[in-house]
């Protein structure tokens, strides 16, 4: 059975002449423990799909099912314990006045943990930061370190599903390698399911089992990663994307 399934998802913003149909009739399913990639044109609605799953998009229609339960309207607290998200821009996703300790501590508190001190230390170790960074503020961290904090925050609730929005696009290649290794290790350790957005096909090829190609709000093709490696795309846009990446 699939861990996440999205059927016929439409997401739109605004109304009248300012209406944008950001996602149009998207459908895909991700099995438990699998890693699913979303690639495609810039502005094609990749981030919007993740935000809609998390309940951050105001207007959507279609069906989203997480672990067999259909989701509608407001998310319950239990949902956030099961699904978490890492945002695209590590420079914008941390509160500028909150130290790493505050960010993680508050998250743990909201999820009802009591042994907060121990868990903060463990989370920082898990993402390879260590206690040295515990009381730093975001402006004292590099982009890669910020992204690790964001990943630690997402892991704090011990979710089963992690939605990753371009987790490495703002980072340099050496940090990218560290973060991708970290994500791979965490997936094995905690049995996580990933949905990962990226515009870099080699990153998706490295991390994912399946991927969907998006263009202009629609999913034009879903393929296995072997097909990606063998450069066997069907849709002309995916072919174009593959050719451009080599």
């Amino acid at each position: 059975m699939s861990m996440i399934s999205v059927e016929n998802l439409d997401v739109w913003f605004g109304r009248g002449r300012d209406r944008v149909d950001a996602v149009k009739g998207a459908s895909f399913a991700v099995k438990r423990g699998e890693s699913f990639g979303l690639v495609g044109e810039s502005g094609s609605g990749k981030s919007t799909i993740l935000r809609a799953i998390m309940g951050l998009a105001p207007d959507w229609s279609g069906q989203i099912t997480v672990d067999g339960k259909a989701i509608s309207g407001r998310r319950e607290k239990g949902f956030y314990k099961q699904v978490q998200m890492v945002f695209q821009d590590p420079y914008a996703s941390l509160h500028p006045r909150h130290s790493v300790d505050q960010v993680l501590g508050e998250t743990l508190l909201l999820h009802g943990f009591t042994d907060i001190d121990d868990r903060v230390v463990k989370l920082l170790d898990d993402v390879g930061l260590g206690g040295k960074f515990r009381f730093r503020y975001p402006h004292q961290l590099s982009g890669g370190q910020r992204q690790r904090v964001a990943i630690a925050r997402a892991l704090a609730a011990e979710p089963e599903i992690l939605l990753l929005d371009e987790p490495t696009s703002a980072l340099d290649v050496s940090v990218q390698a560290e973060i991708l290794n970290l994500l791979a290790d965490l997936r094995v350790e905690h049995g996580l399911t990933y949905v990962m957005v990226s515009h870099d096909l080699s990153v998706v090829g490295h991390m994912c089992d399946q991927l969907a190609v998006m263009k202009d709000g629609e999913i034009v093709e879903i393929m296995a990663v072997d097909a990606l490696r063998a450069m066997k795309a069907v849709h002309p846009y995916s072919q174009h994307l593959l050719e451009a990446s080599v």
């Binding site: 290649v173 050496s174 990218q176 390698a177 560290e178 080699s202 990153v203």
Partner: peptide
């Protein structure tokens, strides 16, 4: 080191090299 830490489509590997 920087070059080697890039993931590659044609050569899948379990772990990427870290600098």
């Amino acid at each position: 080191g920087l070059l080697n830490s890039l993931p590659r489509l044609d050569e899948p590997c379990a772990r990427l090299q870290v600098l």
